[in-house]
Amino acid sequence: MNTTTRTSTAERLGRAFGRGWRAYARRERRASNWLVSKGMPRAGATALVWVAKLAVLGVLLYVAFWFALVMLGVAAAGWAAAANTSDEDEWPFTDLTELRKTPGYDPNLYNDTSHELYTDD
């Protein structure tokens, strides 16, 4: 019997996400401290970090907006293409009288038994 507990996939993903978040916060703090060491006021460094975050968020929202717009266009094009299909056969003539008016009509090819030129072989 095995007494060791196994970590679930959700726990492993959570730990990986936490490590990534801590690394991001550490780099952000390091960048802010570097700006302060170069003579920028602490409030200015904090504001600059927030401006960078908001700029990245703005770019992500901009890309997401255009991606959603393209996907809506693709969906609308698919809907329009599906709406243009008919349930009827792709036969170009509506009835037998129009078919008989076409040049070169042969009643044997269409099994038109009511036509006077139809021959039963």
Rank of each mutant, 00 (worst) to 15 (best):
N2Q: 09
R6Y: 12
T7R: 15
A10I: 11
L13V: 11
L13K: 15
R15L: 07
F17M: 14
R19M: 09
W21R: 15
W21E: 15
R22C: 09
Y24C: 11
A25D: 13
R27T: 10
E28L: 10
R29T: 13
R29S: 13
R29G: 10
R30G: 13
R30A: 15
A31I: 08
S32V: 15
N33D: 08
N33Y: 05
N33G: 04
N33S: 13
M40I: 04
M40Y: 06
R42C: 02
R42G: 01
A43I: 02
A43C: 03
A45T: 06
A47Q: 14
L48I: 08
V51N: 05
V51D: 06
V56Q: 12
V56P: 07
L57C: 07
G58C: 09
G58D: 07
G58Y: 06
V59K: 14
L61R: 12
W66D: 11
W66N: 14
W66L: 13
F67R: 12
F67I: 12
A68M: 04
M71H: 10
L72V: 11
G73N: 03
V74L: 14
A76K: 03
A77H: 09
A77N: 09
A80T: 03
A80H: 03
N84Q: 13
T85G: 07
E88L: 05
E90P: 07
W91D: 08
W91P: 02
P92K: 01
F93Y: 00
F93E: 00
T94I: 07
T94N: 10
L96E: 03
T97Q: 06
T97C: 01
L99R: 00
R100T: 00
K101D: 05
P103K: 09
G104W: 00
Y105D: 00
Y105T: 00
P107K: 03
P107H: 02
D112F: 02
D112C: 04
T113I: 10
S114F: 08
H115W: 11
H115N: 11
E116Y: 07
E116W: 09
L117K: 13
L117F: 12
T119V: 14
